[in-house]
């Protein structure tokens, strides 16, 4: 009796907690509402399963509790029941999986007109690199990193000329313009995480990862690191400003160019002798 009651209380309390929780998704600031929809859908489906299973469990405990007169029913298996349940579960799983895969498909295919911005992580700072107007991002490699070239931009790549380097400042993005975010690290694994964007991705040293996003509202957002990157991990913060085109133009005009940073040219001598490239 008590046990069945407690199971019921757990069920009701869990559902109520879900309905009235003060801890819920932050207001979204990107067009990844599809992710939110899938998340909500998953809550509905799993919530229904939770209620059904736990309620049935509690009812069983109540209804079939021991008494002197009771004797259990002997029934090794019921093929029909198991088949029905298997099919129902499969349907539920397909119902969850299909939207997830569709959303993932769009997640990994940035639109062709997306602007590019590279984000570089280093314990425990964020750096940003943007192509010049109409230009492209040059290659980069941790082996180029020097005091003058903290991002390791490849000085031999013509595309590197004119790349804008943001070292220590905030990152600005245009509102309602898709942007492909390229991610790289020059020491350990980091993760570029803005809760309001929903999207995130690890930043790997020695490789390049990416995701894309369209910011949908202007404002200032906090950038966090979401992959354990050493003892300073909680303090690896940055700031993202989403703003109108006009404000963005003003900001971009103030940014430093890679060639300007490297007037001294000292960084180029640092090319390490690491053997032949393929």
């Amino acid at each position: 009796m008590i046990v069945a009651g407690v199971i019921l209380v757990i069920l009701v309390a869990s559902v109520l907690f879900h309905l009235f929780t003060p801890w819920w998704m932050t207001p979204i600031a990107a067009d990844w509402s599809t992710i939110d929809h899938t998340l909500r859908l998953t809550f509905w489906v799993t919530g229904a399963a939770f209620v059904a299973v736990i309620a049935f469990l509690g009812w069983c405990v109540y209804r079939y509790r021991h008494s002197e007169t009771r004797r259990a029913h002997y029934e090794p298996e019921s093929g029909k029941l198991e088949t029905y349940l298997g099919i129902a579960t499969t349907i539920g799983v397909v119902f969850l999986l299909a939207p997830g895969l569709v959303v993932w498909n769009s997640y990994i295919h940035p639109p062709a007109d997306a602007a590019e911005v590279e984000i570089v992580g280093q314990q425990w700072n964020w750096f940003y690199r943007l192509p010049a107007e109409g230009g492209k991002l040059g290659r980069a490699d941790a082996r180029f990193v020097t005091a003058e070239n903290p991002l390791g931009v490849n000085p031999y790549d013509p595309n590197s000329k004119g790349n804008l380097i943001v070292n220590g400042g905030d990152l600005h993005l245009r509102v309602n313009k898709p942007v492909k975010i390229l991610l790289r690290s020059i020491d350990v694994i980091h993760n570029f995480y803005i809760p309001e964007f929903r999207a995130k991705m690890d930043m790997l040293p020695g490789s390049e990862s990416f995701f894309w996003v369209t910011p949908t509202r202007t404002g200032t957002f906090e950038i966090l690191c979401a992959a354990y990157c050493g003892t300073g991990h909680p303090f690896m913060r940055g700031t993202l400003v989403v703003e109108s085109d006009a404000d963005y133009e003003k900001w971009i005009a103030q940014q430093q160019k890679f060639t300007a940073m490297n007037e001294q040219k000292r960084g180029f001598a640092a090319l390490p002798a690491t053997g032949q490239e393929k």
Partner: peptide
């Protein structure tokens, strides 16, 4: 009870798009 809750929340993390905001 605990396995049902933990198992169902695994469906969030196993489904790739839902995993993105919840991961880490």
């Amino acid at each position: 009870v605990t396995f049902v809750v933990g198992g169902l929340s695994g469906l969030f993390l196993g489904n790739v798009a839902v995993d993105v905001p919840l991961n880490s």
